[in-house]
């Protein structure tokens, strides 16, 4: 899922940094409007650690091998904190694990971070359905959707980015087939991440609903 150095042309890398800059500014502005912007930092920091380590967990899905991303999960639980959290996680992944790269940091952050914000809004959508806001079923279903869609969107962006930038000289058809194969392997991963997100959301709902920004248990 992470795009390494040297795959994308320079314009795309610069564009990625521009989009990431804007998204970071937008997220930080939202965070700054909260009553206590530092209140959620412990939660964000711990989930950044989880995000950092998640990419090392490989799941073999033939023909490729994919790894957990957890961007949908971060969005679901952290809201606007998810974007800076993913950005910081990616910096450390690039430097320490060699996963992704510094030139493609902007592209990768936009690719995973913006779907995370979308996932957050999907999770919040459950407020519109009936009054039983804290119904376990609603939390479960919407967190599953948020986790799955967050990853799915990131996979689609990855797919579009790499398939439109195949350098001249390479056999386009073969490379395209390989990219499609890898992208299809992300469909089962969507289910896995959705399930994972739903399990975590239901666990938090039972143990400490305040962490999901739900005021009191229903």
């Amino acid at each position: 899922m992470h795009i390494p150095d040297g795959i994308l042309p320079a314009q795309v890398c610069i564009g990625g940094y521009a989009v990431t800059g804007l998204a970071t500014w937008y997220s930080l502005r939202h965070i700054n409007r909260k009553k206590d912007p530092t209140a959620d930092i412990p939660k964000a920091s711990l989930l950044t650690a989880a995000f950092f380590i998640a990419s090392s967990i490989h799941i073999p899905i033939p023909p490729a091998s994919v790894h957990l991303v957890l961007n949908g999960l971060l969005g679901t639980v952290l809201g606007y904190y998810a974007f800076p959290a993913i950005l910081i996680g990616l910096v450390f992944q690039a430097i320490i694990l060699g996963h992704g790269g510094l030139t493609t940091l902007g592209v990768n952050a936009a690719m995973m971070g913006i779907p995370a914000l979308v996932a957050y809004h999907i999770f919040q959508l459950r407020d519109r359905f009936g009054r039983r806001l804290n119904d376990r079923w609603f939390v479960g279903i919407f967190s599953f959707l948020a986790g799955a869609v967050g990853l799915g969107l990131a996979a689609i962006v990855f797919f579009i980015l790499v398939i439109t930038t195949i350098p001249s000289g390479f056999d386009v058809d073969v490379e395209r087939a390989a990219i499609i194969g890898l992208s299809l392997a992300h469909i089962p991963l969507m289910l896995i991440e959705g399930t994972f997100t739903a399990l975590l959301a239901l666990f938090l709902l039972r143990v400490k609903p305040a962490l999901l920004n739900i005021k009191s248990e229903g």
Partner: peptide, 15 residues
Amino acid sequence: GGAVLWGFIGTALFF
């Protein structure tokens, strides 16, 4: 990797 993880946990504990 462990040092980075501990950095995140430390940040969480601090705040």
